[in-house]
Computed example of a mutant assay.
Amino acid sequence: MKAAPEAQRRLLDLQAVDTALAQLAHRRKSLPELAEIEAVAREISALEDERVRAQVTVDDLDRDISRFEKDIEQVRQRKERDQKRLDAGGALKEIEGLQHELATLNRRQSELEDAELELMEQRETAAAALADVQDRIGAAVRRRGDAERRRDETYAEIAKEQEFKSASRGPLAADLPADLVTLYDKIRTETGMGAALVHAGRCGACRIELYGADLARVKAAPADEVVRCEECRRIMVRTAESGL
């Protein structure tokens, strides 16, 4: 393929734009905020599991405490009935029976209240654990929100740079021979880079030094000949810096 030396040199400008666009795309995909957001999301998921377990513990204790309260209330009501019957008087045997039952009910009430107190202490501890994990979830959610805000701000900056670079690429490509741009784009799509400067006898893309028959081939090529590297197949742009 033939192309004017100036057109070949301007390929480097096009490549610079494409390299900048590729770097912006890579930067967008590899923002540290993305890894941070993912890590915090995993942390929140684990904390949510912990919160569910803590909530289940509190709920179970609440049910147990409620059951004890009902049992205690039943004992109190039974005591009140027995006490009224006792106060009303009656046969000695009946009074002795009521006194015995009241003593039994008092012991039962005391046992139930002690057990309820123990459960209430456990619930206090469980509630504190639940509040703690909820606080940690809140802190993690705030960290994630901050990371997402920073990500979005950087996305906006990158998009602005991409728009500027893309706008400058169009006129550059349009001012070059269509067949040269087609070849360049094909190589760039396949390898990530379409053209590179030959500098000090080395291919600017793969950095391999030209020597022997390959060096002779490049030196002998007319200035308007589009030369490609035998190693990486990129277009080699020759200038005064090429050392040929």
Rank of each mutant, 00 (worst) to 15 (best):
A4R: 13
A7R: 06
R9I: 05
R9E: 07
R9Y: 03
R10K: 12
L12I: 13
D13G: 08
D18F: 02
H26E: 15
R27L: 12
R28I: 05
S30L: 12
L31R: 10
E36A: 07
E38L: 06
E38R: 14
V40P: 01
E50D: 00
R51H: 08
R51L: 08
V56W: 07
D59F: 08
D62P: 02
D62V: 12
D64T: 14
S66V: 05
S66K: 09
E69T: 15
K70W: 10
I72D: 07
I72R: 05
D82G: 05
L86R: 02
L86A: 00
D87Y: 06
A88V: 06
G89Y: 02
G89E: 04
I95N: 02
E96F: 08
E96M: 13
E96A: 14
G97P: 00
G97S: 05
L98F: 01
T104S: 06
L105N: 07
R107Q: 07
R107H: 06
E113G: 00
A115H: 07
M120K: 12
Q122M: 12
E124A: 14
A126V: 00
A127G: 13
A128I: 01
A131T: 09
D132F: 04
Q134K: 04
R136D: 00
R142L: 12
R143D: 07
G145I: 03
D146E: 12
E148A: 13
R150Y: 04
I158K: 00
K160D: 11
E161H: 06
Q162A: 07
F164T: 15
K165C: 06
G170M: 15
P171N: 10
A173R: 01
A173I: 09
L176G: 03
D179T: 14
V181K: 03
D185I: 04
D185E: 11
E190I: 02
G194Q: 01
H199T: 13
H199G: 10
G204P: 02
G212V: 08
A213Y: 08
L215E: 10
R217H: 13
R217K: 12
K219N: 15
P222Y: 01
D224A: 03
V226W: 00
E231G: 10
E231A: 15
E231N: 14
V237A: 02
G243F: 05
